[in-house]
Design a protein around this nucleic acid. Structure first.
Length: 647
DNA sequence: GTAGGGTTAG
């Protein structure tokens, strides 16, 4: 797109006196020198006019004559021309102007050098900008801010640090930062302590009401996971705009607090602010985390307004995948004109998590044909697909060839996926061997993958070893303590149980109760193990008992193997009976007409008994049930699950 | 002449 350049034709006569015509002397002009001076003036005036008109080719042609004659115009004209170069990305012309204004004893004004700095920065030529900055005889707040914002915007950590160093040098130089400086430098903050110091300085000089500064503060606090601080900055808001709202909504959405993000979204609309692509992307991401298909579907209507927005479409695609509605995600994906690596990776992972591994691998092949280069997350999706479908050979092939085929080194997460793949397939020894071969240090996630396999394949000894490793890496992982104590309970090692429980008490770790959520008529109902606060809990429990009774008639036997507690017989069965997902399923059966899919989200992985229960309910009630646990999705239909009991 | 927000895994 051709940039708009301000056109202002300045009368030649008025500008005549503002330009410098060099060389000049005190002697009386000779007729020859008078003629030359007149000619020089004409050249300069042409240059001034071309610069103001944005006629870059003619201005550059005239500049050549000026260079030959060693004559100069006022800095304003060069400044105008430099801006024209920036707008048209004509860096080569800009470099010629740079050389010209630093030759022949001409002294360019600070604002002109600032323009040159800006030109290099916009073209990401940081080195050139820094050299020029170092040469500047005088630097004002704009010179410093231009450099600081350039470094702060870099993705390189060392360059970001340079932005903070420059801020210190700027202060030492006696130059006071302004709102531009603060909103830039905040993005380079690499320490929370430093962020707090800068925040204090901003308050001290009263710049916190600037919307740019405010959105930067919210953004940085959110990035540090300090959502409450971000919210404080937001709540102090007297002045605010759409971006400030987007910053706070995005902050909560990215920090997995979908409820708060949605709450703020409602407030934003109520306050009369127009939502845009960024708002919708964050809100969709919140719906994704909370598995709110109904609300997500309503947002889809607004997304259509921005049908060319790739990031927004990717968020929509992910929402449908993560809400287990593959028909909708297929539809969005096929309609997307532009697809990037995120679109493909989202879809591959979505298919894999929903149990359509073969389709995920087929899509990966299609991606290769489309010439979009896979990244490390794409490969993770591929490995996940292999892992969850028991495709051990395919998984090993992709894992061993990822470096050669796609130039991607296997990272910790790829090893984790392979441990999972081998472990699920019962190859526990190979999984342990792989952990020992890892080039990077295994972390809690890696050991958790092994632990999951140990549970499935009932290898208690190895499970205890893996659990200890997890606790070494993540001493607050409640689930692992519980599992470890259950493993010891199984072998009746009471002394070990006491040790584990003491450690939990000592560290103040409490078991996270199982929780399931279901969206009914735009309202989310939560079911928590041991909590009877749902208004219809009595009816639900009554209905559940009736369903269990019917299931037992067709051969259902509660599977107590998955839940090892200090309970026996009927007590253990009872504890299984009220697992949150069972209550949510029954509530779904009671609330929805028979054709509607029951969709449930869980905070913990589904247990074996609830898995059998969901399969049988899907059969006797002729219902589709989708349960999303933290790892994957289970689509229950006519007594079968999409995971084929391999999870 | 210097500054802003959004998407993919576990």
């Amino acid at each position: 797109m051709r940039a708009v350049v301000r056109v202002r034709v300045i009368p030649v006569l008025r500008l005549y006196h503002s330009s410098s015509v060099l060389p000049s002397g005190n002697d009386e002009p000779t007729p020859d020198s008078a003629a030359a001076a007149a000619q020089n003036s004409v050249i300069i005036h042409n240059f001034i006019n071309y610069s103001y008109q944005g006629d870059l080719p003619r201005a550059m042609e005239t500049l050549e004559s000026m260079q030959k004659r060693n004559i100069f115009a006022h800095s304003v004209s060069y400044s105008q021309l430099i801006n024209c170069c920036v707008a048209r990305r004509a860096i080569q012309h800009g470099k010629r102007i740079h050389l010209h204004v630093f030759s022949g004893g001409y002294v360019p004004k600070t604002f002109l050098i600032n323009n040159l700095l800006n030109m290099y920065v916009k073209d990401k030529l940081l080195h050139e900008a820094q050299v020029l900055f170092d040469q500047m005889p005088q630097r004002n707040v704009i010179s410093w801010t231009t450099m600081i914002s350039a470094y702060a915007a870099s993705s390189n950590v060392d360059l970001k640090r340079r932005a903070l160093e420059l801020l210190i040098l700027m202060l030492r130089d006696g130059v006071t930062p302004n709102m531009f400086t603060y909103s830039s430098v905040l993005r380079a903050c690499n320490e929370l302590q430093l962020l707090r110091q800068i925040h204090c300085s901003i308050n001290k000089v009263g710049l916190e009401s600037d919307v740019y500064v405010r959105s930067a503060l919210i953004d940085v606090y959110s990035r540090w996971g300090e959502c409450q601080n971000a919210l404080c900055v937001f709540c102090e808001m007297i002045t605010g705009d759409r971006v400030v709202w987007n910053s706070i909504i995005g902050g909560f959405a990215q920090n997995s607090d979908g409820d708060q993000a949605l709450h703020l979204y409602k407030r934003m609309k109520k306050a009369g602010f127009q939502v845009d692509q960024s708002t919708l992307t964050s809100v969709l991401s919140a719906c994704t985390r909370l598995a709110l298909l109904e609300l997500g579907g309503q947002l889809h209507v607004h997304v259509l307004k921005y049908d060319q927005d790739l990031i927004l479409n990717n968020a929509l695609l992910d929402m449908y995948c993560k809400c287990g509605s593959l028909k909708d995600s297929d539809c969005v994906f096929s309609r997307m004109v532009d697809k990037d690596v995120v679109s493909w990776s989202t879809m591959i992972m979505g298919l894999a998590q929903n149990g359509f591994s073969r389709r995920a691998l087929e899509l990966f092949e299609a991606m290769k044909v489309s010439k979009i280069k896979p990244n490390h997350i794409t490969i993770l999706g591929v490995l996940f697909a292999c892992s969850h479908a028991g495709l051990v050979d395919d998984g090993l092939y992709y894992f061993h060839s990822m470096k050669k085929l796609f130039g991607i080194d296997p990272g910790r997460e790829h090893y984790g996926c392979m441990v999972d793949l081998l472990g699920r397939a019962g190859k526990l020894d190979a999984a342990v061997k792989l952990i020992h071969e890892m080039e990077c240090e295994p972390d809690a996630v890696t050991w958790r993958a092994l632990l999951g396999a140990c549970r499935v394949h009932r290898n208690m000894e190895l499970a205890a070893y893996a659990a200890k490793q997890i606790i070494n890496h993540d001493p607050n992982d409640a689930g692992t303590y519980i599992l470890l104590s259950n493993i010891y309970a199984n072998s009746q090692r009471w002394d070990e149980i006491t040790r584990v429980r003491n450690a939990m008490r000592h560290r103040g770790i409490k078991k996270e109760p199982g929780c399931s959520w279901i969206e009914v008529n735009k309202c989310v109902h939560a079911f928590i193990l041991g909590d009877n606060s749902h208004p219809k809990i009595t009816e639900i429990k009554k209905e559940l008992k009736q369903i269990i009774h019917r299931l037992k008639e067709i051969g259902y036997v509660p599977d107590t193997n998955f839940v090892l507690q200090d309970l026996e017989g009927e007590q253990m069965e009872d504890s299984l009976l009220y697992h949150s997902e069972k209550l949510a399923i029954v509530f779904g059966v009671m609330s929805f007409s028979s054709g509607k899919t029951i969709r449930i989200r869980k905070n913990l992985r589904i247990c074996g008994d609830c898995h059998i229960f969901a399969k049988l309910v899907s059969k006797i009630e002729s219902r589709s049930i989708v349960i999303r646990d933290p790892i994957r999705y289970h689509h229950f239909e006519d007594g079968c699950c999409s995971c084929w009991d391999y999870w």
